[in-house]
Write a protein that binds this DNA or RNA. Structure first.
Lengths: 240, 240
DNA sequence: CGACAAGTGCTTGTATACAAGTCCTGCCCG
DNA sequence: CGGGCAGGACTTGTATACAAGCACTTGTCG
């Protein structure tokens, strides 16, 4: 997350573009490897190259876009190394948060989490909806431990991980299993069983991770083999 | 760390500026709160506004610079909340890494760490030198656990923490005490005493943190009180 | 027929001009 | 003397023009 760089009321078009493109990248609407032409984007969005270009630079800073000078800009492929890093980091942070839980849990957040879990069991659950709930659940746990802001830092480094997870959810909706794991974690937290919560969390996060490995074998073209490799320019390019 | 966004051989002037300004911000050569005029920078560096501006946008994305539209760009003040976040994150990651140490430690890295610690005890130690050694020491520990890359992610979020630490080191050189703590951690790692290493690490990191709190009371103007507050434009501005 | 080379169209990088907003200064008027 | 308002000097935001480089296409020559 860009950590709210400008922070001003007036929304500049660069910022709007950044948010929009970022969402499109994270939701895979812009798939890994997709070419992002500054000219095309500018024309289709009705602005000049400048704000487009600057928003791409911001996304590149997030690691979500790669800019090759004089060649082109591309949605970065999911980098397994970065996914692993983000996974390790996330596990470390979430487990540390569980160790840091106060004796008295914030009842508001607890209620919110309970509500969240109930929704997760909903029968007709859109993948995007589940993803949002999942995100909110984990963030809620961090808020319980008083480290809400740390989540935004983790979220910033989580771009590659999130895209990989989304790929996993797209392929086989295993949301029910994840919902069960969430419930297990939550109940351990409520009963004050820190060790149990940590174990359940570890199990959960590793399940997510192995899901990703499976996906990688299945759709290798979305992953980067050599991070330095330059994508070929769409020659005959089916592309739309 | 910008995670090497372009990754190409040819160094663009934007990238050079980014690296240069970034270093200046992190070393406090550009102190928190300093105004960064695109025009001034461009003129003094002999380039146009474009690369200057774009490098500032990258720094803003890192949270090291704040851009207020139509008002100005400023080196961001050290945000205590972000420092605390980075501290929590760092502790979580480094402790998790200690739990992840392999049975057989890489002898090359071990030798490197031993060498590093020896240098830390050097009599005439520049603050910058100590800081570099400190950084290398912690990174080395992460490499031992096989999570070298996770360090770069942590480093990216560590900007505010690092600047606060540097402030602390500037005020009273307590490097000797830190060197002792480093040695204690290292020896616990070598002897396979995971719990001892974790305890020592926790003690060490918290000592660093309390150092920061002390500095904040001492030099509050370098810290942000209200993160959303807009700096006043230098009116008569002593400024240089 | 094959290989090489100029050409063409794309890309991003940089420079510059202008637009729009903010803040301070100083004049003018009550 | 004090208040208000206009102007100017600064800021960043956006648009546009041109420069430089890469990749493919195509024509030409051996």
């Amino acid at each position: 997350m860009g950590r709210m760089a400008d922070s001003n009321r007036r929304t500049t078009s660069r910022r709007a573009l950044y948010n929009r493109l970022r969402r499109m990248v994270l939701t895979l609407e812009l798939p890994p490897g997709a070419a992002l032409s500054e000219n095309e984007l500018a024309a289709s969005l009705g602005v000049s190259r400048t704000p487009v270009r600057e928003s791409l630079i911001m996304l590149a800073q997030d690691g979500l876009v790669q800019i090759f000078p004089k060649i082109g800009s591309f949605v970065s492929r999911v980098d397994p190394a970065q996914v692993a890093d983000a996974q390790f980091l996330r596990e470390a942070v979430e487990l540390a948060a569980l160790e840091d839980l106060p004796a008295e849990l914030d009842p508001g957040v607890v209620a919110e989490l309970r509500d969240n879990l109930e929704h997760q069991r909903g029968p007709e659950l859109d993948l995007e909806e589940f993803f949002t709930l999942d995100e909110a659940f984990h963030q809620g746990l961090l808020r319980l431990s008083g480290h809400a802001n740390a989540w935004t830092t983790v979220a910033a480094a989580k771009g590659h991980l999130d895209r990989a997870r989304r790929l996993g959810l797209h392929e086989h909706a295993s949301s029910a299993a994840f919902a069960d794991q969430h419930t297990q974690i939550f109940e351990a937290v409520l009963s004050g069983d820190t060790d149990g919560a940590r174990t359940a969390m570890r199990t959960h996060l590793r399940a997510v991770f192995s899901d990703i490995e499976r996906i990688r074998a299945h759709s290798p073209q979305l992953f980067a083999s050599d991070p330095g490799a330059v994508p070929v320019r769409r020659s005959v390019a089916v592309w739309e």
